[in-house]
């Protein structure tokens, strides 16, 4: 196992932690992705086409490289170049609205703070993900707010050798909400529907899907780690039609971040939401209740389930349901073994 990223680190106040991390960065070089107080300074490779088109790239002065202050000069220069590229629109967006530069330089560094320092996530079975080429990653959904999807994407980017991006499929509610929809698209998400899933898989992307949907995220704390129904199995037919392997992912830890004790249905209906959660801290503490509890997270990717041999049976409901059940069973069993490994939900 290569879970070397300090699972024993206790959670600390995030601002002080980030400041303390900075000097450590200088000593151990570029082994792991950086976390720095200001995200725009985390730019490590300026996007090639933007800089080339402009003919202007802030040059790091090579004459003084071994001087101790130059790391900062370089960072400032890169940060400014990043800002200039963003302001001039010199970046690329794919047809789903995915902005890889913004994701790598801004979203993922922020999520990594949660992933590593707040949730102390441990990841197993990364070798089950393909280094290149498509796969459909199917996870269990929980936690009232779908942070598990974001943590899964962060884990995948952090631990795969090529730093791959997980293209998440979200409910249409996500794309109905202003701001949230914008962030979802820019970070590589799209609406959960078969045309989009198949299009992404055909172009060799890793696609993440949570077939439980709101039944999973919105379930109450008493039901934790009990997989809900898997819907119509649309995700299986997308994998079958494109012949891509399915990688089941079991996520432990998300159930405890916002333990949902009750659901105020009339209020949910009034606001047009699938549920209105009551947790030990929300809505009692107001905005403070939105801080997730620092549970300990474990994510395990199971062995891929091949589908290429079933490609012509994508329209056979029996094949689809059987495969969906197989995925569901794998995730449920992995959840049990992971839970045995983590007796205390808030332990180190």
């Amino acid at each position: 196992m290569n879970d070397d990223h300090r699972p024993d680190r206790p959670p600390r106040k995030s601002t002080r932690k980030a400041a303390r991390r900075a000097p450590a960065q200088k000593t151990n070089g570029t082994v792991r992705p950086t976390i720095l107080p200001t995200t725009e300074f985390v730019v490590d490779s300026p996007s090639t086409n933007g800089a080339a088109r402009n003919g202007h790239k802030a040059p790091p002065p090579p004459a003084v490289l071994d001087h101790p202050g130059d790391v900062w000069d370089d960072r400032v220069a890169r940060g400014l170049a990043f800002l200039r590229r963003r302001l001039a629109g010199d970046y690329e967006v794919d047809e789903f609205g995915f902005d890889p530069e913004l994701t790598d330089k801004v979203f993922l560094p922020l999520l990594r703070l949660l992933y590593r320092d707040w949730f102390r996530t441990e990841v197993y079975g990364v070798e089950n993900l393909p280094a290149n080429g498509p796969a459909l990653v199917v996870g269990n959904h929980s936690g009232t707010v779908a942070l598990d999807a974001l943590m899964l994407a962060t884990a995948l980017n952090d631990r795969t050798p090529n730093h791959r991006h997980l293209r998440l499929l979200g409910a249409d509610l996500v794309f109905r909400m202003p701001i949230v929809s914008e962030l979802a698209r820019k970070s590589g998400g799209t609406v959960a529907c078969n045309p989009d899933a198949e299009r992404l898989l055909r172009t060799g992307e890793l696609v993440g899907v949570f077939p439980e949907g709101f039944k999973g995220v919105g379930k109450q704390y008493a039901q934790r780690y009990k997989l809900q129904r898997f819907g119509r199995g649309g995700f299986v037919s997308a994998a079958l039609r494109t012949g891509t392997p399915i990688v089941p992912a079991a996520i432990v830890g998300a159930e405890e971040i916002y333990p949902m004790l009750a659901d105020i249905k009339p209020l949910a209906r009034l606001l047009g939401l699938p549920y209105f959660p009551v947790t030990p801290t929300f809505p009692w503490l107001g905005p403070l209740g939105m801080v997730p509890l620092p549970s300990k997270w474990l994510i395990e990717f199971s062995a891929p389930i091949p589908t290429a041999h079933l490609q012509d049976q994508a329209d056979d409901p029996l094949v689809v349901f059987n495969l969906a059940d197989q995925v569901r069973e794998t995730i449920q069993q992995t959840l049990h073994t992971l839970l045995e490994r983590r007796p205390d939900p808030f332990g180190r």
Binding site: A58, G69, W72, A77, R84, L87, A88
Partner: peptide, 26 residues
């Protein structure tokens, strides 16, 4: 209003300013 060339000039100016300030501090 915000042409590409102006942004490049501003970037240059800020960077030079920061470098000068750091040089004097050092």
């Amino acid at each position: 209003v915000l042409a590409r060339e102006q942004l490049a000039i501003a970037e240059r100016a800020i960077l030079d300013g920061i470098r000068q300030a750091r040089a004097t501090v050092q």
